[in-house]
Design a protein around this nucleic acid. Structure first.
Lengths: 207, 207
DNA sequence: TCTATGCGGAACGCTACCGTTCCAACGGAA
DNA sequence: TTCCGTTGGAACGGTAGCGTTCCGCATAGA
């Protein structure tokens, strides 16, 4: 937060120094090993000493970049690319839904992402600073779903008085529950049917 | 598992001993403080030393009952009452749904339950033994939903070829997501609308 | 009353992580 | 080529939990 990387290494240092800048490969190795350890041990069990060791890096190099665990987590999370390029328009509510569900599944399929995400959801109540770090992700998902609903309203597939908040819950929750919480499978047929049924729910969703 | 309380204190000891049995009030204090600490620090950060201290009890008293953390957690979880008395029949699919949703909300409203549950879902991937301990709860929820669907089929409200697995996901997930993951509210109106919309989804759910 | 056992409390040795500090060595910009 | 900050590595004192062991006391059944 107040100790982002840019604070630790003021620009002046890069410009004025007649010598080395912090090595990008070391930073990358630390970030990689941070998420690796997070998935393995959970946030609470995460040891910065082990992170540095696993990265093949001295502890000093880590503490020179981030002052503590929560700053490191927030900073790294905020740098994860929001690969939200798709503004899908697939012709119908069900087709749009299926595209969104497939996108969610694509993310939740990575075991590391799945573990970090469930762990994060439990940890946020204990470490509120982490909530700020995932706000952008929540907003991104929300906007994506809002776009989907806007198009459905234009097509007169759902009522303009639809409850968007509930719609967001209806779309994201069942798949998250199935994959991340229950550890279950979700093949193509499951996604297709879930899209169809969620579509029916949204058509019935009006204030 | 292999170290349940009944193993640690064989019946013979109670019968043959000319003296004291382990005190129930101490056991109860330990159980209480175990869940308290769990909600506060998370499973990974849970220290048995702190549990004993908070219970006003010596560490020896704790280790005399359970050999380690995971045994204690499994044993205590298995003793939590499954308050599943209600076999609700409320006349319609939507009314039954609303009753189930209200029951779920009643559980998730307790902050301690909510914290332990989200923490548990994250921890299970790391500590598979915990999964066995919550199987009974999952089964109970599943049977409850199965009963609801059976009645809906009898009333010809949903197709007999309904996908029960998906139905279970559709019913439980959105409310869990909203309350436990997002930390959001869920007033009476929300529950009523969610019941109505979920009903529409189930009516559309057929193979 | 006698007696066996659980009781709280304290201490044991061990391991691990924190956050800091020092060092000699390396390497890129001027 | 010079020079200066980053590098990996090691060590620091401090905190904390684990799982065990030992006390002297309290207690409840025979």
């Amino acid at each position: 937060m107040e100790h982002k990387r840019s604070d630790v290494i003021p620009k002046a240092a890069r410009v004025l120094s007649g010598a080395a800048v912090m090595r990008a490969d070391v930073t990358k190795a630390l970030a990689r090993s941070f998420f690796e350890e997070w998935a393995r041990t959970g946030y609470a069990g995460l040891s910065l000493e082990r992170v540095a060791r696993a990265a093949g890096v001295g502890k000093a190099a880590l503490y020179r970049r981030w002052p503590d665990k929560v700053s490191m987590a927030s900073d790294l999370l905020s740098q994860v690319g929001l690969t939200m390029t798709d503004v899908e328009e697939h012709g119908s509510l069900e087709a749009d839904l299926q595209a969104v569900l497939l996108a969610i599944r694509r993310v939740l399929r990575h075991p590391k992402v799945r573990r970090i995400l469930t762990d994060l959801h439990g940890e946020i109540e204990r470490t509120p600073a982490l909530e700020l770090a995932i706000r952008p992700f929540q907003r991104a998902r929300r906007e994506r779903i809002n776009g989907l609903i806007d198009r459905a309203i234009e097509r007169r597939e759902v009522s303009p008085s639809v409850d968007r908040e509930m719609a967001a819950d209806l779309i994201a929750a069942p798949l998250y529950w199935r994959i991340a919480v229950l550890g279950g499978r979700s093949d193509r047929a499951y996604i297709e049917r879930l899209a169809r049924i969620t579509g029916a729910a949204l058509r019935a969703n009006q204030a």
